[in-house]
C-alpha cells in the first residue's frame, strides 16, 4: 500500500535556530501513529509544517501522491488533513453548532443538510446536549471534544490530535481514546501527539520519537519504549522532575 502522507527532508528554522529536521516520515492510510518526544522537541512544529501553518524551509510534503509543500493551510484542510490544537482554540462569540458550521461553509454540503450533519458529529463526540451553548461556556473536556468535532467536519483522511487529552481525568482520557479508535475504524489515519505515555502506547500501531527536531527512534510501541536513547531523553526527563 502506498503512503498517504510522505514527509521528505522537511526542515524548519526560526532565525538561526533549527527547530526541526531534516525529518523523513511516512504515514499509511488508516494508520495510528504516535508522536512522542520531550517539550520543545519539534512535535508541534512538524505538525504545523504538515498542516501548512508553517512553511517548511526545506523538503517536500506529499499527500495522496500530490506535492502539497506550497499549498496554504486552508487548502490542505479541504484536501483532508485535519488537526486539533494543543491549546483548544474555540471560535468564541459563537455557539457550539456554529463552530462546526465554519468549516462546513467551505464544503459542498447542501444548505438543508448542514444542521443534521453537524448534529451527527456533535452526537458522536457527546456534545449534542450543548449545541446552543456559547463556546466560552464549555469545560476543558468539552473544549477538547469541540476541537475534535470541528476537525471531523471536513471528513479528514488524516487527523492530527495534538495533545487532545492533556488536562483530562483518567475516565475522560478513555472517552477520547475510544472516540479516536472509532474514527480510525472508519479508515481515518491518526497522528497522536501525547505526553500521556500509556495512552499513546495503547493507541498507536507505530511510535516515532523526536528529540531536538530529529527522529531518534521509530518502530513498534514496545520497541520504542525500550529504546535506550528514548528512555534517556524522554523518560529520564520525566523521572528527573
Amino acid at each position: 500500500m502506498s503512503a498517504i502522507v510522505e514527509i521528505r527532508g522537511v526542515e524548519k528554522r526560526f532565525g538561526a535556530i533549527r527547530a526541526l529536521g531534516p525529518v523523513n516520515l511516512s504515514l499509511q492510510p488508516g494508520e495510528r501513529l504516535g508522536l512522542i518526544g520531550p517539550n520543545g522537541s519539534g512535535k508541534t512544529t512538524l505538525i504545523n509544517c504538515l498542516s501548512g501553518l508553517f512553511a517548511a524551509n526545506a523538503g517536500t510534503i506529499v499527500f495522496e501522491g500530490r506535492d502539497i509543500t506550497q499549498e496554504p493551510a486552508h487548502v490542505r484542510a479541504r484536501m483532508g488533513i485535519a488537526r486539533s490544537f494543543q491549546i483548544p482554540r474555540p471560535f468564541t462569540g459563537m455557539s457550539v453548532i456554529e463552530n462546526l458550521l465554519v468549516p462546513m461553509d467551505y464544503l459542498p454540503i447542501e444548505a438543508g443538510a448542514r444542521e443534521g450533519r453537524a448534529m451527527e458529529i456533535l452526537s458522536s463526540v457527546g456534545l449534542a446536549g450543548r449545541r446552543d451553548a456559547p463556546a466560552e461556556a464549555l469545560s476543558q473536556l468539552e473544549l477538547r471534544k469541540l476541537e475534535l468535532a470541528r476537525a471531523l467536519v471536513i471528513e479528514p483522511k488524516v487527523l492530527v490530535a495534538d495533545e487532545a487529552m492533556a488536562g483530562l481525568s483518567e475516565g475522560e482520557i478513555n472517552d477520547v481514546l475510544a472516540l479516536l479508535m472509532r474514527l480510525n475504524e472508519r479508515g481515518v489515519a491518526i497522528i497522536m501527539i501525547e505526553h500521556i505515555m500509556h495512552a499513546v502506547m495503547r493507541f498507536s500501531q507505530r511510535v516515532v520519537c523526536l528529540e531536538t527536531g530529529r527522529i531518534i527512534a521509530e518502530g513498534l510501541p514496545q520497541a520504542v519504549a525500550q529504546d535506550k536513547h528514548v528512555q534517556k531523553v524522554y523518560f529520564g526527563e520525566r523521572a528527573g522532575r
Binding site: L53, A73, A77, F85, F91, G93, D105, R150, I154
Partner: peptide, 22 residues
C-alpha cells in the same frame, strides 16, 4: 458565511485556517 468566517478569524486565525477558511 462571510461573517461567520470573519468571526472565526477574530477568535483564532490558525484554527480558522485549519478549518479551511482562506
Amino acid at each position: 458565511w462571510v461573517g461567520r468566517s470573519l468571526r472565526a478569524i477574530r477568535a483564532s486565525e490558525p484554527a480558522a485556517e485549519a478549518c479551511g477558511v482562506p
